[in-house]
Design a protein around this nucleic acid. Structure first.
Length: 253
DNA sequence: ATGGCTTGAGTGTCAAGA
């Protein structure tokens, strides 16, 4: 099983790139975030024509998540059980003998923002819910845009970012809390190049200068073996790219 | 220089992203 995650920052704009990438990489499942479109406008026919089924939960303008899969997904559910949230940020499904959770964690904006509190509350609810999900599913993967750079090596300039949103201690503690539930960060199971990132600011030639952060992750529970995990930089070189690159993991059950 | 791009909404220019 090859599973992947990609924050596409508008599926409407990025659809040709997503279809192209599916054709090249042929993942068994691809989790998407920031669709930025309502369900009625989801490009289901185009995705099916590329040989993929889709489960999706979108809304106008913001957020929105989907799981594309070569074999149709089953037991699809949306959101975090017990946490009322108008923002469409989580979709889960059974695919190929494993449970996939596709998540778009809130950004938080800045540490003095109400959105930061919402992010921390959201992560607390997410953690409590994932603890239950781990008890229910022997093979569980959580893929998505976590909007947290777990360690200083995941940040191009740790001094400049110190204490800022995406790297602050409470956010990193929340990420470690997820790991401590019984997950591994698949990317760190392997030797990786220094300065490996998944997001670069559109401004200031951030990608060309590799001024990035590693904030998109694939977490695996103990029931899943992992043969590889890598970041595909190619789509970030496209014209009109997403600001995020896809992350791909090779899973053995 | 709290700027710098990109998107969606909507047709002004702003909110939001990270």
């Amino acid at each position: 099983m090859r599973i992947a995650t990609w924050n596409v920052n508008s599926l409407k704009v990025r659809l040709p790139q997503v279809l192209d990438w599916l054709g090249k990489q042929r993942p068994d499942a691809l989790c998407l975030q920031e669709l930025k479109l309502e369900d009625a406008k989801f490009p289901l026919a185009e995705i099916q024509a590329a040989g993929y089924a889709a489960a999706f939960s979108g809304q106008k303008t913001y957020n929105g998540v989907a799981i594309l899969s070569r074999e149709p997904a089953s037991a699809i559910s949306c959101g975090i059980a017990g946490f009322a949230d108008l923002q469409r940020r989580v979709i889960s499904a059974d695919v190929g003998g494993m449970r996939l959770v596709c998540a778009y964690v809130p950004n938080g904006q800045s540490i003095d923002s109400e959105k930061y509190q919402y992010k921390l509350n959201w992560l607390s609810a997410f953690s409590g819910w994932l603890k239950q999900e781990l008890a229910l599913h022997a093979r569980l993967a959580v893929l998505g845009d976590f909007n947290i750079a777990p360690e200083d090596r995941d940040v191009h300039d740790p001094k400049a970012w110190e204490g800022q949103v995406l790297v602050s201690r409470p956010e990193r503690d929340a990420f470690q809390g997820l790991i401590d539930l019984g997950f591994r960060d698949s990317f760190r199971l392997f030797e990786q190049a220094d300065k490996s990132y998944t997001w670069w600011d559109y401004r200031m030639n951030g990608f060309k200068r590799n001024l990035g952060l590693r904030i998109d992750h694939i977490l695996l529970n103990a029931g899943l073996a992992c043969a590889s995990c890598s970041i595909d930089l190619e789509p970030r070189r496209n014209e009109r790219p997403s600001d995020h690159a896809p992350v791909i993991a090779e899973i053995g059950l």
